[in-house]
Design a binder for these strands. Structure first.
Length: 210
DNA sequence: AAGAGTACCAACCGCCACTTC
DNA sequence: GGAAGTGGCGGTTGGTACTCT
């Protein structure tokens, strides 16, 4: 299918947003709502493409957004959910009110990823045998269902097979088996992941209260 | 003081899923 | 059923601020 370009390149502004542009966007959305994003810039009198407006609003201008540093608790939630869900920033963001997928993604790449890598290195040096055993057992659990899922067409660039070690190995024998047998694969995998992250969040909150 | 290297984050791009006709 | 339009997502980039030498 041939797609029309997101925006006509001619005359549309790119790069950082100015205060004036922000104000125009905010007041337009407050007055009329965003409606169809692609039509919004023209209606609001902005020389931006709809996508750019949407991103700006969702990630920075929306009143629901919580700015500032991530708390320890938030960090922990991101780490755990990333272990379960992989790079599904949007799904992870739904568990962190006020945080956007972009913010979480940036935070992951600039802080948590490095920290995780560092701790991995430390663990490897401190206990290489255990590391090797863990990796090997993880492969055993993961390899079979992953191959099957891929062969069945359940994986895609949007929903790649999950490589996080969280619950995936546990899921391999029962639920994934059922999923592989069905036709609407990725949705079910999503639901499964959704469920598991909910389970985590519930247990996490219970744990926090204790 | 200044240049180089690094960290951070806002924004863009391309792709895919969903909806509408 | 399929083409076309739109929204949303994740990966990546580019600019700026900060730190180090």
């Amino acid at each position: 299918m041939v797609r029309t370009p997101c925006c006509e390149k001619m005359g549309l502004k790119k790069g950082s947003w100015t205060r004036e542009e922000d104000q125009i966007l905010i007041s337009h959305i407050q007055r009329y709502g965003h409606g169809i994003w692609r039509a919004l810039p023209k209606q609001a009198g902005l020389l931006r493409c709809g996508k750019s407006c949407r991103l700006r609003w969702i990630n920075y201008l929306s009143p629901d957004i919580k700015r500032g540093k991530f708390s320890k608790e938030e960090e922990e939630i991101i780490l755990k959910l990333h272990g379960i869900l992989g790079n599904r920033w949007a799904t992870i963001a739904t568990r962190l009110p006020g945080r956007t997928d972009n913010e979480i993604k940036n935070f992951w790449h600039t802080h948590l990823k490095k920290r995780l890598e560092r701790s991995k290195v430390i663990n490897t040096y401190s206990n290489p045998l255990q590391e090797a055993q863990t990796a090997s057992s993880a492969r055993t659990l993961i390899s079979v269902p992953r191959v099957a899922v891929e062969a069945s067409g359940a994986s895609s660039s949007r929903n790649p097979p999950i490589v996080g070690l969280g619950f995936y190995g546990v899921a391999s024998s029962d639920i994934l088996g059922q999923i592989i047998g069905n036709s609407s694969h990725s949705r079910q995998i999503d639901k499964e992941l959704e469920f598991r992250s909910n389970v985590y969040m519930n247990s996490h909150h219970k744990g926090m209260k204790m």
